[in-house]
Nucleic acid binder design. Structure first.
Length: 575
DNA sequence: GCCGTTTTCGGCCCGACTGTTTTCAGTCG
């Protein structure tokens, strides 16, 4: 029997939901955090927990999973859910977890809004706020009401959306189900998922097959997931599963598979440009429906158009067709080009593994080097390091380096950029580190002018090598802070500062658009995992996706270079 | 909840910010 049980991501989501309810219950806050930590750990594990349980393997080997959570995971895998969670869901109004997601409203106020005022969904809150009633409540006022309104204005107007890593396991499992269990021929994912966009609203898939053949299989699958199937037309079926993106399945004539693959991979803008191009090039009316492309594969169609094959990640209408015609598309970076990770948090601060453990994992990943970059002292909440602690860490790294084979551990820091652009640590300590990442972790609301000045001042410090997550966005939760990216890019070029592509799934910062801007200007990028445990090193793959969308080649990225070459670049800036 | 352990229970994430409750609770990073 093929694995159709809960994926690790599913389990992580259930534990996260539990964490929220535990918070609502007002239980020991550390309990809630334990569930969140476990969820985070599980996201990073690349073996299926369902499989591990079947093989009777011990889950307690993972940090953050003890006896209790292990039992909960077993229950999730065996029953698809958690009794405790079901009870809690019944205890509170359905929308309460969405209410907590509104910035400025926490568990205490969410409960009060529900219990006292009967506001049970985000829509309820929105209406209440719009009529000026929210500001009258205890703990609210005009400003807070406005904040709530502007957040919900944006959120309620858009369709449900998902981060790529959230849907990846779901899609994989679905394909596996079709191939292994049902032996459906060649399910093929297209659309934004194939283009590896950071946000996915819908999964598009192509099948060769007939409605009669496919629908019962899809219904069977949807049933197992408590979802439904909608037949939209003779060649289009949609699967709806709660808390997952819809899957749109299109049934394609085998002779048209190639051209439909291009069409449904998109993007719209790319399609329009390709369509225009084909009209002239091949002297045809409609590329999507012309006999000239029948029975051709996607590759063959590009050949026919005399265009170099354009990777799906590039198909956004940003000049890729023109470059394809000239046969000079970028040779996009691959994960195997990456030789090391330069942004890692250990248990000195908010990371969950030791330097030693990271080193071992990095060796297994085939890295030549890693750089340890814990937080600086201002971030007290995570035990940010002061000079003394850094000295201690430097000593430990040097001692490990003496004993360890096959990898070099570099000494670094992720130092906070303070409000005025000065740094949270003096140069006297920064100069003793191999790599300094400087990041903004506070005062996100500064006006554009001041925020830009702040970052530029940091970049001009000779010891700052990399600007961490340069726009500070948290996908779906926090907008990027206001900065003049042109100015930042220019300054990076002038100072030799490197911009980070942070691979955390909710950051992916810089985004694809800015990456291309930076690349075109000649600014170097560093793709980092920002790992908080050893499994987090694997997140680099999402950074790679984004890098490819941003046209990046191996040459644009510093951590494709050897350690010696990187250190040379850094010492150049310090002169 | 988990972890580490001097194996049985105490420590774990604490301080700044916000808006308004005027002396602080709730929220956030």
């Amino acid at each position: 029997m093929t694995d159709i049980g809960p994926s690790n991501e599913d389990i992580a989501q259930i534990l996260e939901e539990l964490a929220l309810y535990v918070e609502l219950e007002g239980e020991n806050p550390f309990k809630s955090r334990a569930f969140k930590n476990a969820a985070q750990t599980i996201r990073g594990i690349d073996v299926s927990l369902s499989q591990m349980i079947r093989q009777d393997k011990d889950l307690k080997q993972f940090t953050g999973i003890g006896k209790n959570i292990e039992n909960k995971i077993k229950e999730i895998i065996q029953t698809g859910s958690l009794n405790k969670l079901q009870k809690l869901r019944r205890k509170y109004p359905e929308g309460i977890l969405d209410i907590i997601k509104i910035p400025g409203i926490g568990p205490k106020q969410a409960i009060e809004l529900c219990r006292k005022y009967g506001l049970k969904t985000q829509e309820d809150i929105y209406k209440f706020a719009k009529t000026g009633q929210l500001r009258l409540l205890r703990g609210f006022g005009e400003k807070k009401e406005q904040k709530v309104i502007s957040f919900l204005d944006k959120l309620l107007s858009q369709k449900k959306s998902f981060k790529l890593p959230e849907v990846e396991p779901f899609v994989k499992q679905f394909i596996n189900y079709l191939k292994e269990v049902k032996r459906i021929g060649d399910p093929f994912v297209v659309g934004s998922f194939r283009r590896k966009k950071d946000i996915i609203r819908n999964i598009d898939m192509l099948f060769k097959g007939s409605l009669e053949e496919v629908v019962p299989i899809l219904k069977d699958y949807a049933l197992q997931k408590n979802g439904g199937v909608i037949i939209r037309s003779q060649d289009k079926v949609e699967i709806e599963i709660k808390k997952k993106p819809n899957i749109t399945i299109r049934l394609i004539e085998p002779s048209q598979f190639g051209i439909k693959t291009i069409f449904f991979t998109g993007s719209k803008k790319f399609n329009k440009e390709l369509w225009e191009f084909s009209k002239e090039k091949l002297n045809i009316g409609n590329l999507w429906d012309d006999s000239i492309v029948l029975n051709l594969t996607e590759q063959e169609i590009f050949q026919k158009l005399d265009i170099e094959f354009i990777s799906p990640e590039l198909r956004e209408g940003r000049g890729e067709i023109e470059r394809g015609v000239k046969k000079c598309l970028p040779k996009l970076v691959e994960e195997s080009d990456i030789l090391g990770d330069l942004h890692i948090h250990t248990n000195y601060t908010d990371g969950r593994n030791t330097i030693q453990e990271y080193a071992q994992s990095a060796i297994l990943k085939g890295y030549e080097y890693i750089c340890i970059t814990d937080h600086s002292k201002r971030l007290r909440m995570v035990n940010g390091l002061d000079e003394k602690a850094i000295r201690r860490q430097i000593e430990e790294i040097e001692s490990i380096n003496q004993d360890i084979q096959g990898i070099e551990i570099l000494k670094g820091i992720e130092v906070d950029i303070l409000e005025d652009g000065s740094l949270d640590l003096p140069n006297s300590i920064l100069k003793d580190l191999d790599i300094v990442i400087a990041s903004v972790h506070s005062k996100f609301q500064l006006p554009k002018r001041s925020q830009t000045k702040r970052i530029i001042r940091a970049m001009k410090n000779p010891y700052v090598n990399i600007i961490g997550h340069p726009t500070g966005r948290l996908i779906g939760r926090r907008e990027p802070y206001a900065i003049d990216m042109d100015e930042v890019i220019n300054c990076a070029l002038e100072t030799g500062c490197i911009l980070e592509l942070n691979s955390q799934p909710d950051r992916l910062d810089l985004n694809d658009y800015y990456l291309k801007l930076a690349k075109d200007a000649g600014v170097k990028i560093c793709i980092n995992s920002d790992a908080h445990d050893i499994h987090g090193l694997g997140l680099i793959k999402y950074g790679i996706y984004q890098a490819r969308r941003g046209w990046l080649e191996k040459e644009d990225i510093i951590n494709t270079l050897s350690k010696e070459e990187i250190l040379k670049i850094i010492s150049n800036k310090r002169v």
